[in-house]
Design a protein around this nucleic acid. Sequence first.
DNA 1: CGACACTTTGAAGACGATCAACGCCGGTGG
DNA 2: CCACCGGCGTTGATCGTCTTCAAAGTGTCG
Lengths: 253, 253
Amino acid sequence: MPSKMFPDAINSLALFAGISPEERDNFLRAGHIRKLSRGEYIFHRGDPVKHFYIVCSGNVQLIRETPDGKEITTDITSRGKTIGKMDILQAFHQHTASACAIDDVQVLEFPATWLKEIAKHPVISLNILSSMSQYVHMVEIESEQKSTMSVAQRIGCFLQRLCVMHGFDPRGFELPYGKALIASRLGMEPETFSRGLATLKDHGIKAQNAKIVFCDIEAMEDFVCDHCSMAGECPTHYNLSSFPENKNKKSYT
Amino acid sequence: MPSKMFPDAINSLALFAGISPEERDNFLRAGHIRKLSRGEYIFHRGDPVKHFYIVCSGNVQLIRETPDGKEITTDITSRGKTIGKMDILQAFHQHTASACAIDDVQVLEFPATWLKEIAKHPVISLNILSSMSQYVHMVEIESEQKSTMSVAQRIGCFLQRLCVMHGFDPRGFELPYGKALIASRLGMEPETFSRGLATLKDHGIKAQNAKIVFCDIEAMEDFVCDHCSMAGECPTHYNLSSFPENKNKKSYT
DNA sequence: CGACACTTTGAAGACGATCAACGCCGGTGG
DNA sequence: CCACCGGCGTTGATCGTCTTCAAAGTGTCG
C-alpha cells in the first residue's frame, strides 16, 4: 500500500486535497512504484504518453532540447509533485519534454487513462485546475523576469523560492543540486550563474560553495509579495531595493 | 441570446467542445455582454476576481507591471479566447494581471462562481484542462525561446503563429495591432523589434509598415513542427535553417 | 497645415555568452 | 601513499547582442 510507504509525500499531495484518505488510497491503488538511478530517463520527449507520475523521493529534471542540441531545464520537480499531467491532458499525445532522474528517484506510476478518469471527480478536477493555474502563473512570471530582471535578481528570486518550497532554514542551507543544473533551470550559462551568485553578497545573500545564507531576513520579508502570500510558490523579487537600479522605484505591493 | 449575436465566436469556443448547442446555450445564458472602448480596463491586477470573460470582438491585452513601473504584455487575446480563467481557479482570489482593451472590445461576462460550477461538468472540465495545458506548453516554449533564440528568430516565430492563429494569408497580411504592443508581448524594446523585423528580409519575411509577406512558403512548412501540428497554436521556430548560426544543426523533428 | 502618436535610425553603453585556463575535490589505480 | 584523471566550479578576457538615449522620419486626424 503506497500510503504506508510514503506517508509524507502522499499526505501532502495537492492532487488529493479535500479528499478522504480512504477514497484517496483507493485511487492510489492503481499505481506502482518505479525506482530510477541517477541519470536514468523516465521518458523522453516525443514518447507516446502512457503514464502519469508522482515523485516520492529524489529530484527529477524536465528537459527540452533546442534545435541546436542545447538542453534547457524546464523544471525541477521534487517530492509530492506530479509529472506528465499536462502531456496527458493535451490533445497531442506525446511528451513535450524529457524527464531525467537527478538523484536516485522513486516515483509512483499510474496509467495515463487513470488521470483522465479521476479528473472527472469534481474535487480532484478543481485541484488539478488550481495547481495548473498556479504553475502557469509561475511560468509567466519567470518568463517576464527573463525580460526585465538582471541575472543577479533572478538568482536571488530562485534561491528564495527554493528556500520556501523546500522548507530550508534561510539562515543557512545547502543547494539540493548542482549549480550547473540551476543555471540551466534559470536559462543562463554556468559561468554567468557563478558570477551572479558572487554579486549577491552585496545584497544580503552569502554563498560559499553550495552553502547559501540569507543575511538580511528583513529583506526577505519584502520578498513575500501578494503573489507569494497565496501559496509560497510564487517566484518573486528578492530584495529589490538593494539593487542600485531599483532605488527610488515603487515596490511590488 | 448570445449565440445569435456572436455565432462565430461561440461556435468555435474550445470551452464547449463536445457539448450540445442546447446545453451550451443554457450555460451561456448566465452571461451578459459588456462593451469597452480602446484603452479601457476590464479589470486591474490586484482586483478581487469577480468575473470570467469570453472575448467576442476586438483584442484584449493582458498586462503585468514590473516593480519599476514597466509594463509587460503577458498575452494578447482575441475572439473566442477566455480571460480570467486562471485567476478564478487559483486559491489566490485576485487578478494576477490587468486586462486592457486594445481596440473597441465586446466581451461576454460571467460571474466567477459560474466557471467553478461548469468546471464540475466532466466534459467541460477536460476542455479547460486541455486548453490550459496547451497554454502552459506555449508559455514554456516562449520562455525557453527567450533564453535560446535571437530577437529575429523570436519575431519570425511570432509572426508565423499570428498568421496561423488568425487565419491570415501568409502571402500578405496586416499586423492586427501596433508594433510597440508586439514588442512588449515579445519582451523586447520597440527599437529592437524594429531592427529585428528589418533583418528578417534576409530570411524570407518582408515587412513594410504593417504589411507582412512570407516570401518563402516552403520555409514555413518547416515551421510546422510536431508541436504545432496538434493545434496550430504552438510557437515554434521560423525557418531556422536560414539563420546562419543554425546551419549544420539538426532540425526540430 | 500643424500637432501628435508611432516608428525608425543612429550611436553609446551595459550585459550576458563564449572561449580558455585554472583551481578544487573525489575516485581510481599503481 | 601518491600520481593521475575527470567532473565541477570559478575566474579572466573578448565579443556580440540588446538596451538606452537622442533625434529624425512617417502617418493620421483635427
